[in-house]
């Protein structure tokens, strides 16, 4: 079985679910944060022989990690229907416990996971733009200087020094493993995106560029949680291949 794990309102994930089903990625279970929030039973076992997790959902589905071959993981937070009922003094602790639990469960999922969780994000590592800028330069992508300041003169906000002119058209590149998806991507940019994915250790990335009229692309931002619909049929093919080892 394969899983699509997502927030309940994540229409891009639901679009991907239908697209993956149409490509024969079956059995495929769509599990939303609402489903997980109402899970009846969690059983997460760790030991020297490995990790085994079984979750029983309120709709009767049993998801056992031993049956999982891969997942598209777009969860942002650890859902719980009971958390709002916790005592105020215990809410922050309980919330942290749930996030930590979900991190362990998602990390233990077998097979390809787009994206595997990290302590800095359940669906892949979230980074400050300063770090993306730094990594992008290391990956060989063109990028403008970026300033971070704690100075009152900056309004205590990062000063973005023309990473992109306000009216510059945005070009989005989606990276799935080593495959770059997008329209008319210059080869040097495609290669830089692949290197960025490796440096960021993130299999699924959305990378935005500003393109000037002369066709010069400049990096502006990256996210482990892109709107997959921007990649159309091609990104569905790429994800299906990645998830099934094709």
């Amino acid at each position: 079985m394969w899983l699509v794990l997502c927030e309940t309102q994540d229409v891009a994930a639901q679009w991907a679910y239908l697209g993956l089903l149409a490509r024969g990625v079956e059995p495929l279970e769509l599990i939303t944060s609402t489903n997980l929030a109402q899970a009846v039973c969690w059983e997460h076992r760790l030991g020297n022989d490995g990790v085994l997790t079984t979750v029983t959902l309120a709709d009767g589905r049993h998801i056992s990690s031993s049956d999982v071959h891969g997942a598209l993981n777009r969860l942002l937070t650890a859902p719980s229907a009971l958390l709002p009922l916790a005592r105020p003094s215990e809410k922050a602790y309980a919330s942290q416990e749930l996030v930590s639990f979900f991190l362990s469960w998602l990390y233990s999922l077998p097979g390809p996971v787009l994206n595997r969780p990290t302590p800095q994000g359940l669906s892949g590592q979230w980074r400050h733009l300063s770090e993306w800028v730094w990594l992008s330069a290391k990956a060989g992508l063109p990028v403008s200087p970026y300033v971070v300041s704690a100075d009152a003169g900056s309004g205590y906000a990062p000063v973005q020094m023309s990473l992109a002119p306000p009216d510059a058209p945005v070009r989005t590149v989606l990276l799935v493993g080593n495959q770059v998806v997008g329209d008319s991507i210059p080869e040097a940019i495609a290669e830089g995106c692949r290197r960025l994915g490796q440096l960021a250790n993130t299999a699924l990335l959305g990378i935005d560029f500003a393109a000037n009229p002369e066709g010069y692309w400049t990096f502006t931002s990256a996210t482990p949680l892109p709107d997959l619909r921007q990649g159309g049929e091609v990104v569905l093919d790429a994800m299906a291949a990645k998830l099934t080892g094709g």
């Binding site: 730094w134 990028v143 200087p145 300033v147 300041s149 704690a150 100075d151 900056s154």
Partner: peptide, 8 residues
């Protein structure tokens, strides 16, 4: 404090 990231 402030810092700049420029060309890596």
């Amino acid at each position: 404090m402030w810092f700049t990231v420029s060309r890596g």
